[in-house]
Simulated assay, not measured.
Amino acid sequence: MGRVVVVGSLNVDLVTSVEVHPRPGETVIGSGLDRYAGGKGANQAMAAARAGSGEVLMVGRVGADEGGSLYRTRLERTGVDVSGVLVDDSEPTGHALIVVDEDGENTIVVVPGANGRVSESDLGPVHACGPGDVVLLQLEIPLPVVAAAVRLAHERGARVVVNVAPFASLPPDVVALADPLVANEHEAAALADAGGVPASLLVTFGAHGASWDGVEYPAHTVPTHRVRDTTGAGDAFCGALAAALASGADRATAMDAALAAGAAAVQHHGAQPDPHLV
Rank of each mutant, 00 (worst) to 15 (best):
Met1Arg: 15
Met1Leu: 13
Gly2Asn: 10
Gly2Gln: 11
Gly2Pro: 02
Asn11Trp: 11
Asn11Thr: 12
Leu14Cys: 12
Ser17Thr: 14
Val18Gln: 06
Val20Phe: 11
Pro22Leu: 13
Pro24Thr: 10
Val28Trp: 09
Gly30Phe: 09
Gly30Arg: 06
Gly30Leu: 07
Ser31Ala: 13
Gly32Ile: 03
Leu33His: 09
Asp34Ile: 11
Asp34Ala: 15
Asp34His: 11
Ala37Trp: 09
Gly38Gln: 10
Lys40His: 08
Gly41Met: 10
Asn43Gly: 03
Gln44His: 03
Gln44Asp: 10
Ala45Thr: 08
Ala45Glu: 00
Met46Leu: 15
Gly52Ile: 13
Ser53Thr: 14
Ser53Leu: 15
Gly54Leu: 13
Val56Asn: 06
Val59Cys: 05
Val62Met: 06
Gly63Cys: 01
Gly63Pro: 04
Ala64His: 14
Ser69Cys: 02
Thr78Gln: 14
Val82Asn: 09
Val82Leu: 05
Val82Ile: 08
Gly84Ala: 07
Asp88Lys: 09
Pro92Ile: 14
Leu97Tyr: 13
Val99Ala: 09
Glu102Tyr: 08
Glu102Ala: 15
Asp103Gly: 13
Val111Asn: 01
Val111Tyr: 14
Ala114Asn: 08
Arg117Pro: 06
Val118Leu: 13
Val118Glu: 01
Ser119Ile: 07
Ser119His: 12
Ser119Thr: 13
Glu120Gln: 14
Ser121Thr: 15
Asp122Phe: 05
Asp122Thr: 10
His127Trp: 12
Gly130Tyr: 10
Pro131His: 05
Gly132Ala: 09
Gly132Val: 11
Val134His: 05
Glu140Trp: 02
Ala148Arg: 14
Ala149Asn: 06
Ala149Gln: 08
Leu152Asp: 07
Glu155His: 07
Glu155Asp: 15
Ala158Trp: 05
Val160His: 07
Val161Thr: 04
Asn163Gln: 11
Val164Cys: 03
Ala165Leu: 07
Leu170Asn: 01
Pro171Leu: 04
Pro172Gly: 03
Val182Glu: 02
Asn184Arg: 04
His186Thr: 15
Glu187Tyr: 00
Asp193Asn: 12
Ala194Asp: 12
Gly195Trp: 06
Gly196Ile: 01
Pro198Val: 02
Leu202Thr: 00
His208Gly: 08
Trp212Gln: 02
Asp213Met: 01
Val215Gly: 00
Tyr217Trp: 14
Ala219Pro: 04
His220Tyr: 03
His225Arg: 10
Arg226Val: 06
Arg226Cys: 05
Asp235Trp: 01
Phe237Gly: 00
Gly239Arg: 05
Leu241Trp: 01
Ala242Arg: 07
Ala246Asn: 07
Asp250Val: 13
Thr253Trp: 04
Leu259Glu: 09
Gly262Asn: 09
Ala263Met: 02
Ala263Val: 02
His268Ile: 02
His268Cys: 05
His269Phe: 14
Pro273His: 12
Asp274Asn: 13
Leu277Ser: 03
Val278Trp: 10
